[in-house]
Design a protein around this nucleic acid. Structure first.
Lengths: 188, 188
DNA sequence: AATTAAGGAATGAACGTTCATTCCGGGGGT
DNA sequence: ACCCCCGGAATGAACGTTCATTCCTTAATT
């Protein structure tokens, strides 16, 4: 293990927060998981709340980067929709702990305003993308937020199922669900 | 306020667990919210963990009852699908705290085996219903679990949005989303 | 040798839980 | 009619434990 304590602490916290939540995770637990002394954590983070907020913002930033990277330049909405769906799935599968943590922590009382608005900004990107589809007349007459509920809600619940083994991921399954989501949002 | 302390304590706990989670809620907080002494809680519940499990099971039972009640007798799958969707939405809107609590607590470490299997039984009902649709050839060639991800995931995220004001509920909106979900799962 | 990083024991606050005490409504003795 | 017990319900101060955080010693680096 590389001896980057700052990173080790963040990863340990992410794992534990995802499993047991913020209040169910103690600082000594994080220290043990990260293989550092409890006091060492306070050399890198002002306190537990600052730690959870830094972790949240980092995870959201990487999530956003995953969506932005490779976003189709040409204005092909169907292509862009597919991109967003598969990137949501990719992030949730490559970073299941981060994904679970983000969704559990979003709107939580321990997040500061910066963290909350970072997450909103991330969601706004998806909303703007869906609004373009509406303007192009490709989507149904529902608010973009409703489409977010369908697509993001589906991916979120899917990720839960992949994690607990209720459902086995496969390319075929994901392709089928992507098509389902498209049929749910597209006009006629 | 009716002086049913057992119920008052459960409702207070539900509100706080939904807002701040199990570990983020202290027993004195519950006592204050329920307007009883801290010790009184232990006259009605063996300990905090028994309290949260009793609350969970009660909420799941009422959720299940909401789905079962009025479930179309005749084997009309489209009608049944609509029923399930609208009952999921109804429960989440009439009991937003219970719905949030159930989804946050499902699979949590503090739930005992009985609670977990109660929740599984509830989900099994939905799965069996969707499997009937598959057998009738009305649904796509995806596992029933995938349909659960789409429908339940959508309702779950929708409920979040209704709660935080991101989206305003209306009969028209719900009818549109129900149609979207149907188009997502139905064959061809 | 001086400075910085790290660890883990120490600390005070707050936790879940217990328990000695108080409260309160109603039945029997006067 | 009044008083006085009685017993269960309710309480909140107090307990041992564990928490987040601090502090001091030791190890490492320059």
């Amino acid at each position: 293990m590389a001896d980057n304590k700052h990173e080790n602490i963040l990863m340990a916290a992410q794992k534990l927060f995802a499993e047991r939540g913020y209040d169910g995770t103690t600082v000594p637990m994080i220290a043990e998981e990260a293989r550092v002394g409890a006091g060492t954590i306070y050399r890198y983070f002002e306190n537990k709340q600052m730690l959870v907020n830094e972790l949240f913002r980092g995870s959201v930033a990487r999530f956003a980067a995953t969506l932005h990277e490779g976003f189709p330049e040409q204005n092909d909405f169907r292509k862009r929709f597919r991109h967003v769906f598969y990137r949501l799935v990719r992030y949730s599968r490559e970073n299941p702990e981060a994904f679970r943590f983000i969704n559990a922590a979003a709107n939580a009382y321990f997040l500061d305003e910066v963290s909350k608005s970072d997450f909103e900004g991330f969601m706004d990107f998806i909303e703007r993308h869906l609004d373009e589809g509406k303007k192009a007349g490709l989507l149904r007459g529902l608010p973009a937020q409703a489409f977010i509920a369908i697509v993001y809600g589906t991916v979120f619940h899917l990720s839960r199922m992949f994690e607990d083994g209720t459902l086995e991921p496969s390319d075929e399954l994901l392709a089928g669900i992507e098509e389902s989501c498209w049929d749910a949002v597209s006009a006629d």
